[in-house]
Design a protein around this nucleic acid. Structure first.
Lengths: 267, 267
DNA sequence: AGAATAGTGTCTATTAGACAATATCCT
DNA sequence: AGGATATTGTCTAATAGACACTATTCT
């Protein structure tokens, strides 16, 4: 940090720091499990009426003792997610924590190209979140609407700021994460079937997978899933065997990995 | 960005934004190719005398017309690298570009935990750089020293700020990048031998590799390397065949990947 | 019964890793 | 000549992908 002392940011126009969240979940649409992203429709300028990622400024906060207590970045991301989903009133920390406890959060990247916000210099730290099926969001107090939107139906050409690019980066990261980590389990309930897990992969990768081979690969990766001993209460609605129930294992990485098919000729 | 309009950062203490760079290169120490990182010894408080990553504030800059012209983040990273390495005077853009043209740069992550800088709230965007053998750095104008330091010899317990953690994250990212991308070529000259490439892998992964199999794997990954048709002028100093020379191919990803050995029992 | 879903067997092509052997080039 | 380095051959185990088949449960 060569100039940490020589440079005083207070003498310049400040750089604003925001946190944006790409929250992904799987919802069933017409019997098809489909990848959705949480978006808000902006109620203010700029980009009024456009879809945007939920997010907002990182700000100093007053702690219980009234002293300044800055937010950590992941903390700010969870707060934005909680506020926009309406999962809890922002004052009710306990409820927020309970409902969002199972949400997986990781940093995606930071976007700071000058001009990405027409008003001022803004640096956005983007986070990627994987969530099990959450309720429909309740519109925040800022007169926007919020909704889970199927990613295939997102009109990227009309998104606010550079959020279309952030979304694309997030989708690629998510697809890649499923290859090397057991994070697909973050999209399903605590107990799940191998078929449900496969539907997560199919929704995120956007392609059908060979069910028998998928089954075997999941079971052969140590620590991916643990057998609960139980099965589903019923078979499929139109018949079919009951499925065994699993819970997430303890592995952080998959060995061997579950690679996307048809990635041969990578440019 | 829910509160983009409701919140005016000018009313609060500003958040400072810095860029830090983890620049890695391979240098031969006692005949052993060894991974080095560029570090600066701090000449100012806080952390006087401690090793730190090169970096500095992202700042508004006056363009040729005198108007404000903000730096993009990667641009700031290259500037810091150029200033600290003494590869070019900071004002001479052309010279910077020429010497650093072959440096690969990617964003590593953003570190913003409150308290990581004792003076004020600082958000640091860290970049990872892979460089071919660069000259010894020339101490910057800020009375620090700068040097390429073997990563194995870095005293992590006495680094400034949270730079030890950033360095660890960078090393893990670098090791992982070599598995899935052809970026090892960023560490060597434009023409190189398979052995030199293997030495990059061995230095970054910290373990010896099986030379014959490595050779075949590199050649079997489409687009990793291109044969130049030429060979080295001489064999090894103590005898040995001349090696064929290759240049970097056009692939962005390696298929199949070159995986680190002995990663089986990942926690 | 018949359809639907879950799960297992098996075969082939590809890849990973080990070891052996060959090809060149230095002193 | 003899050691050193680069490159190719060959064999075995593991993995990926395809297809066939069995097991179970629904209407």
């Amino acid at each position: 940090m060569a100039f940490l002392s020589a440079y005083d940011p207070r003498r310049y126009d400040p750089i604003a720091v925001t946190v944006d969240v790409v929250a992904l979940t799987i919802r069933v649409v017409e019997s098809v499990p489909t990848l959705h992203v949480l978006l808000v429709r902006r109620g203010r300028r700029p980009f009024v009426g456009r879809w945007a990622l939920p997010g907002g400024f990182v700000r100093p906060e007053a702690g219980p003792d009234g002293a300044r207590r800055d937010e950590d970045l992941p903390e700010a991301a969870v707060r934005e997610l909680a506020e926009e989903t309406g999962l809890a009133a922002s004052t009710d920390r306990r409820a927020v924590d309970r409902r969002l406890a199972r949400v997986y959060l990781e940093q995606l990247g930071t976007y700071g190209t000058p001009g990405r916000d027409p008003r001022m210099r803004v640096i956005s730290v983007a986070y990627l979140a994987f969530a099990p099926d959450l309720p429909d969001p309740i519109a925040g107090g800022d007169a926007e609407t919020a909704a889970w939107v199927p990613v295939a139906g997102v009109d990227r050409d009309h998104m606010a700021f550079d959020h279309a690019r952030i979304l694309d980066d997030a989708l690629e990261r998510a697809a890649s994460k499923l290859e090397y980590t057991p994070l697909a389990t973050a999209f399903v309930a605590t107990e799940f079937t191998i078929t449900e897990l496969r539907e997560v992969y199919e929704a995120v990768w956007g392609q059908a997978l060979h069910a028998p081979n998928f089954h075997r690969k999941v079971l052969s990766a140590p620590g991916f899933v643990e057998d609960t001993g139980a099965t589903t209460a019923r078979g499929g609605a139109r018949g079919g065997r009951r499925a065994r129930l699993y819970r997430a294992g303890t592995a952080r990485l998959l060995h061997p990995a579950l690679l996307r098919p048809g990635q041969e000729e990578a440019r």
